[in-house]
Design a protein around this nucleic acid. Structure first.
Lengths: 232, 232
DNA sequence: CCAACATTTGATCAAGTGGTAGAATTCCAA
DNA sequence: TTGGAATTCTACCACTTGATCAAATGTTGG
């Protein structure tokens, strides 16, 4: 079981492995394209069937590629899955890196919620793959969580605590605020089937998306700032 | 693929099938015990490995039982899984049935959040099995969602809207409020691995549990009621 | 204790799946 | 054009796993 170590967390999301020697340029294009195609296909298949349920044949089909050919690019199912997870984590953490303590907490957190919801709308499969991995106990990506994610969140928690100390926001625990934002925004992607069963709507529906955004921001910002407002 | 139909949603969570004829009493006890033991074991295994990843051997081991014997009680993996899901749904919906429009919304919603959090603490595996099924698109339990859950939630939404009409709560969409409560409370069970990787704590930790409860209720109730307060 | 039924087990199968080997084909620089 | 590397394809294997079945063992009412 080749767990993921933190050193290459943000690396090899594209196909720039093995290119190290000197020249090599023309081939890498076809590699990049195929690797990208495979990762996209794999994300969808893993989202629908989970790690164990997904088969390499399915991924191959989704990528218009034979299974052995797929294994030419990613030498095992685990390696493919690990790469998918790393790519997701990178996108997942991007907006969190931007939280700026010098700016207004209302704007910063509001923008963060916006971005997270937008992410759920644009990449629901990615969110579901992530959810699956977490639900299963993060067997493959725990090492990264304990270093990369842990450190980043500690910094952001400090930012939020600074805001609280300055009386700019309500006195809430930074971590629980983050958890709530993650939980709520990702719920619309991860539990889309449940929502759709009840309402027949998903984030693809623009009206529903805006309604969700309005309500989520209203409640969260309300509690976060300790006063009303927080409109989209 | 024997999907689940709504007629037996709340039924056969125990082992009272096939007992219909007349006498039969002594045997049903052993059946009840074993069925219960199997369901408990299956819930844990399905939570850790997902439907596809779980093997009947694992479930058998966890229940101290051979695989063929297990199949004597549940004639297929799918039937076992379906039964597990039904049992979870029943527990899952219990607290929602109690929402009483005649009582104070602050108390009712507060109690509901308490119960959901308590559920995440006591039955995290159940929550994770459910999360897995939803994330996968609810392939097995969608029929029930579209009838049973849909109807129940429509009623509760009416309750919340009544409160809003009477000016007792803020003007928020009932469904989104429910979604947020579900998302947040279940997050502590479903993403326990993520939380534990970052903080080294889980709901098992009494202090952390109370901290989570305080923050969650503070923010949600704040937004829900349109004013401060909402302490545990 | 016995006959009838319920439960358990070991042996086994068929299907599906991750991964490999090596031939065949495509691609590209010189 | 051509030689060699990169890519793709056609079998194929080893192994897991859900499911079956007949025999064995346990259990109970009479």
């Amino acid at each position: 079981m080749p767990k993921i170590d933190a050193s290459n967390a943000a690396a090899l999301t594209t196909g720039e492995t093995r290119i190290k020697g000197a020249h090599k340029r023309t081939h890498s294009r076809i590699q990049d394209i195929n690797r990208q195609k495979i990762l996209d296909a794999a994300t969808k298949v893993f989202a629908d069937y989970g790690y164990h349920g997904a088969t390499l044949d399915q991924v191959g089909d989704a990528a218009n590629m034979s299974k052995p050919n797929l294994l030419y690019y990613y030498s095992s199912k685990e390696e493919l899955y690990a790469t998918v997870l790393e790519r997701i984590l990178d996108i997942w953490l991007l907006p969190l890196k931007d939280l700026d303590v010098t700016k207004s907490p209302e704007h910063e957190i509001g923008a963060y919620i916006d971005e997270k919801l937008e992410h759920s709308r644009l990449y629901p499969e990615a969110s579901r793959v992530w959810s699956n991995e977490m639900t299963a106990g993060a067997p493959k990506i725990k090492p990264i969580l304990e270093t990369y994610l842990k450190d980043l969140c500690k910094k952001r928690a400090r930012t939020i605590r600074t805001w609280a100390r300055e009386g700019k926001v309500a006195d809430i625990s930074p971590y629980h605020l983050l958890f709530m934002i993650w939980a709520v925004t990702q719920h619309y992607a991860d539990f889309a089937a449940q929502i759709e069963s009840m309402l027949g709507k998903s984030l693809d529906d623009k009206r529903f998306f805006n309604e969700a955004k309005k309500n989520v921001k209203n409640i969260l910002m309300h509690g976060f700032l300790g006063r009303t407002d927080g409109k989209s």
